[in-house]
Simulated assay, not measured.
Amino acid sequence: MPDMSDTAPDFTLPRDGGETITLSGLRPGAVVLFFYPRDDTSGCTKEAVAFSALKDQFDAAGATVLGISKDSLASHEKFRDKHALSVPLLSDEDSETCEAYGVWAEKSMYGKKFFGIERSTFLIDGEGRIARVWRKVKVPGHAEEVLNAVKAL
């Protein structure tokens, strides 16, 4: 599980719209990776909408924001279109990237245990090192807090 000052695990994943994104190819810009459990659920929608609303400010601060879940590209595109999302959504269907970042975890709901994505955000600096980690994210105010961390880099 990577932590502060570790080099961020590199990946190449498909994104909505059909392209692929390679993390190391985004240097020397900062990157915000927000891992979320599922397209079009309440908390995930609020989080993606909040990051999309601040996209221009992230861009101005020199940071690329990427959302990652295990959902398919078709699901991502429906989610993007339904909520007018402007941040790229990456599909990690085999969960390799989720596992590399330590966000694929055992969860519990209504007494049932299952594996899923633990809502987490990673701020990666221009040299590819993890500058900040937020685990078990609470959505309200989170995108703003991440934007302030980007500006402080």
Rank of each mutant, 00 (worst) to 15 (best):
P2F: 11
P2E: 03
P2W: 08
D3Y: 08
S5Y: 13
D6F: 01
P9R: 08
R15Y: 01
G17T: 03
S24F: 14
L26E: 09
V32W: 02
P37L: 04
R38C: 00
D40K: 11
D40M: 10
S42M: 14
S42P: 15
G43H: 07
G43S: 14
C44H: 02
K46L: 15
A48R: 07
V49T: 15
A50V: 11
F51H: 04
S52Q: 14
K55W: 06
Q57C: 02
F58C: 03
D59F: 04
A60C: 09
G62N: 01
A63V: 02
V65P: 00
G67T: 00
S75D: 06
H76M: 12
D81T: 11
S86C: 13
P88N: 08
S91Q: 06
S91N: 09
E93P: 02
E93W: 08
E93T: 12
E93C: 01
D94Q: 14
S95T: 15
T97Q: 03
E99W: 08
A105F: 13
E106C: 12
K107L: 05
M109T: 07
M109D: 08
K113A: 12
F114N: 11
E118G: 09
E118W: 03
R119P: 01
R119W: 07
T121W: 10
F122C: 00
L123Y: 05
I124A: 08
I124E: 01
G126A: 03
G126S: 03
E127I: 12
A131C: 09
V133Y: 02
K136I: 05
V139K: 03
P140D: 01
A143I: 01
E144F: 03
E145A: 11
V146M: 09
L147V: 02
L147H: 10
K151R: 15
